[in-house]
Write a protein that binds this DNA or RNA. Structure first.
Ligand SMILES: [Mn+2]
Ligand SMILES: [Mn+2]
Ligand SMILES: [Zn+2]
Ligand SMILES: [Zn+2]
Lengths: 144, 144
DNA sequence: ATAATATTAGTAACGATTATTATTATGGTT
DNA sequence: AACCATAATAATAATCGTTACTAATATTAT
């Protein structure tokens, strides 16, 4: 997670983007949570600081921060996207009951792309690994 | 891929669903391609046999066939879903340029869920592994 | 045949995201 | 400080894949 203001400004500058208070606020929300909020949840939090911010600005900002590598978008199918201030590729575990998304703490095989390259003519540049299941609150307890 | 008519009928019957000609047609389209078509592409193909079929029927049918385990839905983020008559979990490789989706031929680590279980309190029931890159038609050729 | 149930085509509604636009803010230049 | 070029914003409208609704039709059981 990149928190250094110099580096953040630098990355935006390169593309001619400015570091506005709206963008600072979005980044702050993302960097102060371990959850992986969706655009609307970020919107609600930013509104507490900037009441007249618009949802369009949230989406535009998320797009730009993603473009300069300050966040990663987690695209969950026909449902909504979630965002992660950790732009490094890392596996997640999603609760199919309540939607909670956690990082998977132990790193998994790091050579997946290399392995896959041997089995295809595609030039592999990225991958996505996610697990699905029930979080501690949603899984049947041992007492059930 | 399940092609046995008995088994197909049986799976639908259990939930009280009927095997109509629309559903047969959707399944046939899916089972006769190695691509992973989206709903609209399936719709276009089914229309050649059943000109007045409606897109809503395609979606409803896909939902039902998925529910009874006769296909798998591949949810590609904010873009549209694709469908696969192979309902077994298996990795795919997606071209980020033209959208082509291939199966990854060589099987990858089959104990991913088991490994992940050790690193989380979630009860893991499924996972998703996808690779992204450029297909042979879109990758820069050696002559470039 | 009759009745109960499931399915369909057609169309309207939904909802997340993106585009548009007039206005405002920012940064650099004289 | 005034000026200009450019970028960003708020507010709103549009997009588009998908789902829901509904009246008509088909299928199955009695
Ligand atoms: Mn994460
Ligand atoms: Mn496949
Ligand atoms: Zn949960
Ligand atoms: Zn391609």
């Amino acid at each position: 997670m990149i928190t250094d203001q110099e580096e953040i400004s630098r990355r935006l500058d390169i593309k001619g983007y400015r570091l506005t208070k709206q963008r600072r606020a979005v980044l702050k929300v993302l960097q102060s949570t371990i959850s992986h909020p969706d655009a609307n949840s970020i919107y609600e939090k930013v509104r507490k600081e900037i009441p007249h911010v618009s949802l369009g600005t949230i989406y535009r900002t998320l797009g730009i921060l993603k473009e300069v590598g300050l966040l990663r978008e987690l695209d969950y199918g026909s449902s909504l996207s979630h965002y992660d201030a950790n732009a490094e590729n890392h596996p997640h575990i999603v609760c199919t009951n309540c939607g909670r998304i956690d990082d998977l703490q132990s790193p998994l095989p790091d050579n997946l792309e290399e392995q896959a390259s041997k089995a295809t003519d595609f030039l592999i540049t990225d991958h996505r690994l996610e697990f699905y299941g029930l979080c501690p609150h949603c899984r049947p307890s041992s007492a059930d």
